[in-house]
Design a protein around this nucleic acid. Structure first.
Lengths: 345, 345
DNA sequence: ATGAAAGCGCTAACAG
DNA sequence: CTGTTAGCGCTTTCAT
């Protein structure tokens, strides 16, 4: 018989609905049951055992709602994914989803539950206030600034326990964890140029600030070396991306020999398109991605890319949030990206 | 000024902490405030407006914990991802993560929040009971049966609001939504054979029942056509997979001309390894995957695969769960997979 | 349409 | 070490 069924055969009285019922059975007060089940030290070992046995036997678990209300904390961290630019972009965005997986592990480790919300700011001005103000979470992690930088800044002024994955800007007020995108962009451009490229293109959307920073970094290097670089705007949703990449490649054929893709996903699509056109990589065109997702090592040829350390990012987000939960106004954490040299550049 | 800051300049009294404070300000009773903020019809329009204005002005939102406790429902659906066979497998498993994304959308749509838990059953016998029994969620969706089929069956006997993504077996007691894996396996084998393959292999882990069913379906067709098929066990975590696939390919070289990969991720790795060995696909060896993830269309050559309709799966999971929340003991939902013919088979 | 009052189930301060 | 007690903040009859 599963623990989940209350064995009414053994016990003719009504089921154990709460701590008081259990207290009655154990012949103690509700307070003692509460302490015993919460694992507080100040309970007689025998009493505790008896109570635990009874609880097990009746499949009883204290109501968390009541506990949370009373203690004024929920043990839940909200994770919000704002879908700003391209609503469908993140649905299967491997990077964000992997980050989420690590976050889940990290939070579980620290004894917190994770409440996930995907929000469309355009349809819901109030998304952050609502999440925060409802008393349903103790703190919030926002995955990606999307186009909500200002909104997040506003909130940060009055709400401490929030940490955001994203790009760091000089003088910003919200606590952010993220890769140094500008540096990543520099690494990418340097690599392309070192590999022999003399005319560069950035393939991707430069609206989101993370990507803007990657482009800016690459541009800084290109400008310094007097090498031209142009941005080729591309949506990141799978359906629009392929067509747009094809168009761009037609347009730049023979004029560009180094492509910096905003993400590995873009790079993979670009690689495929180049192969279909019979353009040799890296001989005729060099390509470099960003993220170092698992797919990067599976392309042909294997993709040279800029790695973001997702696990470290998740750990950083959670560590900082816990410190903020404890009242500390933490600094942002900027992680260094690393060049992963494979064969496309 | 952000709504989040309580404008103490305008109002010297202490901040509005609860419905009672707001009631005092509005000159009404807490009950009326509750009704007004909950959007009940039986409130005078003017009173409601006044209350809403006051709430907005003070950035007040009713405490959800208290509400949930009182109403004995949480508005939260638990989503559990059991990590049975290969703990790291799912960390970046695109299929599950995409399903999760759709689930989040679907649940949000229906007004539910989503509480995510990744659990390692081997370290935590009680994972499902704990999730369910704590009164923290109104219902549970389990993503993947992993090696927990029996555990889930037990729970299902005493707990209605649970739906599971996974494989359907004759006579099982828990409500499941999933693709017809056996049929998918048949489609795959038929396709490989139709493309000219005369000796098949299933590449992947046959432990998890979904994969076992895919293999069984393929085997049924192969047997019927008197074509040999063997299983090549492969871990699904990225780090171990590549080496194992390489070994298998060495072993079967020249002996197998049709490979059915358990998932697209495996197929992609297999394709890359074949290319490295100079084996021509589909001429020398045909390959077919399972899932139809976005990468499937990006491989070279584009991957023929068996599509699972993830969005429909998510919708099915949520719909069934809502029916169960309403007390209906729903049947399982088995979705038909579809062959997506591209160029590898 | 609104007010009064009784809890939802638990925790923690206080007293013993 | 344990019992008693006073709420946490909200919802919902039951009156009016």
């Amino acid at each position: 018989m599963s623990e989940h069924e209350h064995p009414e055969s053994e016990n003719t009285s009504r089921p154990v609905r709460n701590i008081t019922d259990l207290a009655r059975l154990a012949g103690v007060s509700p307070g003692t049951v509460s302490r015993a089940l919460a694992g507080k030290s100040l309970v007689n070992a025998k009493t505790r055992e008896k109570i635990e046995a009874l609880a097990r036997q009746h499949g009883f678990r204290p109501n968390q709602m009541a506990s949370k209300l009373r203690r004024q904390k929920t043990g839940v961290i909200g994770v919000a994914i704002p879908l700003g630019h391209d609503v469908h972009q993140q649905i299967s965005d491997t990077f964000f989803m992997t980050l989420l997986g690590h976050l889940a592990d990290e939070l579980t480790d620290k004894g917190y539950d994770l409440m996930l919300r995907r929000v469309i700011p355009a349809q819901d001005e109030d998304w952050l206030d609502r999440f925060i103000g409802s008393g349903i979470v103790d703190g919030v992690i926002v995955i990606g600034q999307s186009d909500q930088f200002d909104r997040i800044e506003e909130i940060a002024d009055g709400y401490l326990p929030m940490v955001v994955w994203g790009n760091h800007q000089e003088g910003q007020r919200h606590c952010v964890v993220g890769s140094d995108n500008r540096l990543g962009g520099k690494l990418a451009a340097e690599r392309l140029i070192a590999a022999g490229a003399r005319s560069l293109a950035f393939l991707g959307d430069t609206e989101p600030i993370e990507f803007a920073a990657r482009f800016a970094g690459a541009k800084e290097i290109a400008d310094r070396m007097s090498i031209p670089i142009r941005a080729l705007p591309t949506h990141l949703s799978a359906d629009r991306m392929n067509g747009e990449i094809a168009e761009h490649l037609s347009e730049i054929e023979g004029k560009v020999d180094g492509i910096f893709a905003a993400t590995d996903a873009v790079a993979v699509a670009c690689l495929r398109e180049l192969r279909e056109r019979g353009v040799s990589v890296p001989n005729s065109v060099k390509v470099i991605g960003f993220d170092d997702l698992p797919i990067a090592s599976q392309t042909v040829p294997p993709l040279t890319t800029v790695r973001q350390d997702i696990a470290a990012g998740a750990k950083g987000l959670v560590d900082l949030l816990l410190r903020r939960l404890a009242g500390v106004d933490t600094e942002s954490l900027v992680l260094p990206p690393h060049l992963i040299a494979r064969e496309t550049a």
